[in-house]
């Protein structure tokens, strides 16, 4: 008897874009509470795989189950528990940092959104720029704001797509601490990165993709 379903169960999935296969016949299981390092070259299918796990898109063939729930069927349920930090920031350029976070808080039904937004802005060090529109932000600042979004959501499964990119050394250190903190809280983490050594120190499992296929690195 299994007491807890695996965090991610990938059953022979393939994903096509036009006539190109981004992910081919991939199977993999990640137990809950473990962390996964996802490696591979550019265009190897890492981002597509993360997007499929995050229910942003769905496999052309095969199935993904998150915490025992199939992604296509139970997408509304899963979206409460899965968060994706991706290349796209999902931010509204014309809204300020605070407005972007408040919007998310309202959609999540957070009670004291004002307080939580203030705390998060403090934490990511953007309090002073809280009322500037995102359009004026640098790539690093946007990344921090995306992190704040992820923290506000408090997911059980957090997906990071190249989180160290666009960050300065201090930011990279903060990101590492954040990952450790989330792991300490029992959050399952998938980390896709080029920085293999950095990633390996933070994770227990590893999956290497080559042209959408699982490879031994």
């Amino acid at each position: 008897m299994q007491s807890q379903p695996p965090a991610i169960e990938i059953d022979d999935i393939s994903k096509r874009f036009g006539s190109r296969w981004a992910v081919s016949r991939l199977s993999f299981t990640l137990p809950a509470g473990r962390s996964l390092l996802l490696t591979g070259h550019n265009g190897s299918g890492k981002t597509t795989l993360l997007r499929m796990i995050a229910t942003a898109t769905f496999p052309t063939a095969g199935k993904i189950s998150i915490f025992g729930h199939e992604t296509r069927e139970k997408r509304e349920l899963l979206r409460h528990d899965v968060a994706l930090l991706s290349h796209a920031s999902y931010l509204y350029e014309d809204l300020t940092a605070a407005q972007n976070l408040t919007l998310l808080a309202r959609f999540l039904g957070v009670d004291d959104s004002k307080k939580q937004v203030a705390e998060l802005l403090e934490r990511i060090g953007l309090t002073e720029r809280a009322d500037s529109p995102v359009r004026q932000f640098s790539a690093g600042m946007r990344k921090r704001l995306s992190i704040a979004r992820l923290l506000m959501k408090a997911p059980k499964l957090a997906l990071f797509d190249e989180p160290f990119g666009e960050l300065d050394p201090a930011g990279i250190l903060q990101m590492e601490n954040l990952l450790k903190e989330l792991q300490g809280k029992g959050v399952t983490i998938v980390l896709a990165t080029h920085l293999i050594e950095q990633g390996q120190s933070l994770t227990q499992e590893r999956l290497h993709l080559d042209q959408g296929r699982k490879e031994t690195p």
Partner: peptide, 9 residues
């Protein structure tokens, strides 16, 4: 941003 909204959810 639309995808962000949908994933919010």
């Amino acid at each position: 941003a639309l995808l962000g909204l949908i994933l919010n959810p």
